[in-house]
Design a protein around this nucleic acid. Structure first.
Lengths: 202, 202
DNA sequence: CCTCCTAAATCGGACGGTCGTTCGTTGAGC
DNA sequence: GCTCAACGAACGACCGTCCGATTTAGGAGG
């Protein structure tokens, strides 16, 4: 199949990443062998290695895909109507971001947790994680600023720290969903809404 | 060194677990070889294998140790004075639990994240995680009930779901501390306090 | 429009290294 | 001198990766 189109090459690469994601979601990065990914992809060892120079790069591509899917969904949730209440904002974020974490027949919350663990030891993965979560926290910080300016929070609120707390409510949902599997999005969102400011802060 | 005391045997086992924790915190479970643990412990392969029948059991012992340290700290924080405000309770939990996650020269937040990832693929580790986090959530649910009964929250609050949200604020701190490393406990606690109920709920 | 040629995409067996684990041996202490 | 904790070399399996052989899409020549 020589001299194929650039589209074909990109599609092949994508096939390989998606096959890798399926195996990685099942068994983690290190308990999944390159052979597993190869057989899941239906290709040969040589073909896979012509697209990715090493297993580490394959892992990095998988991590990048899942984390960027996350930022994309969050950006969409943060953008738009600027005068929503904190409760509406939070519900929007939860309902946009979390369902985006299940696609291609892969539970992306499992890969997210796996990716955090990998970021602890692989500097390249850590860099990807830092970039992505930096973006996410900036988005959440925008929400906090809006809430503050609308009088829901005190003027001297620590915007960055509160954005970290909000990110925690997302990350914690992801962990509990992936590991314990007994969290319900609607009940969770309702409970979270109880904590968000409703009148004036201070 | 035959016929040694039971104390000696238990201490040896503990030495091995702590050596394993040091290596696991650095490199994760699967990128750490049994040889790494053996050389870190200063013992021989045979000695380590006479205490743990397999690497999986060694991992399980490590996970159990870190997770039980967590429940211990939380139980201490939940117990005691029953008429504290939500803000005081939360500050107590954060300040008791999180510093407990750094001891023996090991950053336990790193192992916690690694343990979650492992729970996704090793049923034995998952069982340990379910038990421990079940206990933690019950403890947090007790706090929620107290807050509700004290009038800080509406009567019909979803206790279990709110306990999940509270657990998220702990888990999210752990992830951000381990992976991003830029969270400050005091600022985080202050920001969280802004969200907790202060007067009457509803 | 068909055939041939070529370059590149794909294949898959093989390689050295490292893995987790075993087991025959050693020697300190009761 | 007997017991058994501790040792560490050795084992088979499997790891990630490489590279020469094979296949085939698509341009060139008729």
């Amino acid at each position: 199949m020589p001299r194929v189109s650039a589209d074909h090459l990109e599609a092949r690469r994508d096939e390989i990443v998606r096959a890798a994601l399926r195996r990685f979601a099942e068994n983690g990065f290190h308990a999944t062998s390159v052979r597993d990914v190869i057989s899941e992809s239906g290709l040969s060892a040589g073909a896979v290695y012509s697209y990715f120079p090493s297993k580490a790069e394959l892992i990095a591509a998988a991590v990048e895909r899942i984390l960027q899917r996350l930022t994309g969904a969050l950006d969409a949730a943060v953008a738009g109507d600027a005068d929503r209440s904190p409760t509406e904002d939070a519900a929007g974020v939860l309902r946009n971001v979390l369902p985006a974490l299940e696609a291609d027949g892969v539970d992306y919350t499992r890969i997210a947790v796996t990716a955090w663990a990998e970021a602890l030891r692989d500097p390249a993965v850590r860099v990807i994680a830092e970039e992505v979560y930096g973006t996410v926290r900036r988005g959440l910080a925008q929400l906090v600023v809006r809430w503050r300016d609308a009088g829901h929070l005190p003027e001297d609120v620590d915007v960055e720290a509160l954005a970290q707390v909000l990110l925690s409510t997302l990350m914690g949902f992801v962990v509990q969903h992936a590991v314990l599997g007994d969290v319900d999005l609607d009940r969770y969102a309702t409970a979270l809404a109880l904590l968000l400011p409703r009148r004036s802060g201070a």
